[in-house]
Nucleic acid binder design. Structure first.
Lengths: 158, 158
DNA sequence: GTCCGTGCAAATCATTTGCACTTCT
DNA sequence: AGAAGTGCAAATGATTTGCACGGAC
């Protein structure tokens, strides 16, 4: 069974509406059009609070309301604009999450069940500074911590 | 043109032989069999010093010497054993690198040309500690910094 | 001798692309 | 009007799996 991240534990503690509003504002800045499929996606991403796969977004929109291809294309556009962040994981899958400025953080992902929890803060500034020193510009990063969650540890002993 | 990481700048400063030897020792510990395809792969990984894709390993082995599927399967086994580390990137591709214990570090990857450079050290201890506090065990992490390298910045202005 | 690893062919699966149509702005 | 976004069908491409054979221990 491929791990599917779908737990809804609280992960980030912010309102949904302001997160959507922030994303919309940044879309206008970047001259990205506000369309109904995109509004749906933003709403879903803002509600979820944890990274979601394109499939999950598509599913949560209710089948038939939103083409999977559109999800991918919009996520691509939003990713390029820095409005969502893509988290590539193993087996070619990716998760996507809204980027709330000033609330950057990372997650622990359970290797077995795929559950996700938020971790506070981010320690990459030193590494990013090093990269900048080497002349790299427009820096972003991905970072995921993997482990076995307490629930899974309890179930079976490896 | 899909970015292909293939620059051979020096990235880590260690001998090839000891790195292979270390990997072999750890394979014995884990009861993984030492075979000629695997020796070839270890040699290539140790020489390269920067993460490589399965395709690149296959190509460097010289076609016909090493089946691509074998490369994938061996990388999978070595990854599970913690002997190589898999770095998932965008577009479903992954790079693989030997894990030299005590020499853990990360890389900057150019989004445009795919070139890779080493960055010193790793700052994840605080985040891993936080994860451990939440009850997660057997922690690992992936982390990549992306940017536009100086060469690419010079070429075209976005 | 066993069991793990290999090679070949064929299958998956997430993601991407082509093209004609619709909708923001 | 005109460009950007959408939906559907079909293509891609990295990675995986089934199966019979060969080699490591």
């Amino acid at each position: 069974m491929p791990p599917e991240p779908n737990h809804h534990e609280d992960c980030c503690g912010e309102g949904v509406a302001p997160r959507v509003a922030e994303a919309l504002a940044r879309m206008k800045e970047k001259a990205l059009r506000i369309t109904s499929p995109r509004l749906t996606m933003l709403q879903i991403l803002a509600e979820s609070k944890i990274p979601l796969s394109a499939e999950q977004i598509h599913a949560q929109a209710g089948d038939g309301n939103l083409d999977l291809v559109t999800v991918y294309r919009s996520l691509g556009a939003l990713d390029e604009a820095g409005i969502v962040q893509r988290h590539p994981l193993e087996r070619g899958r990716s998760l996507y999450a809204l980027v709330s400025q000033g609330h950057h953080h990372h997650h622990v992902i359970c290797r077995r069940c795929g559950s996700i929890e938020r971790l506070p803060g981010c320690d990459t500034s030193r590494l990013e500074a090093a990269a900048r020193n080497k002349g790299y510009a427009d820096l972003t990063h991905i970072m995921e911590i993997y482990g076995i969650c307490p629930t899974c540890s309890a179930k079976t002993h490896d």
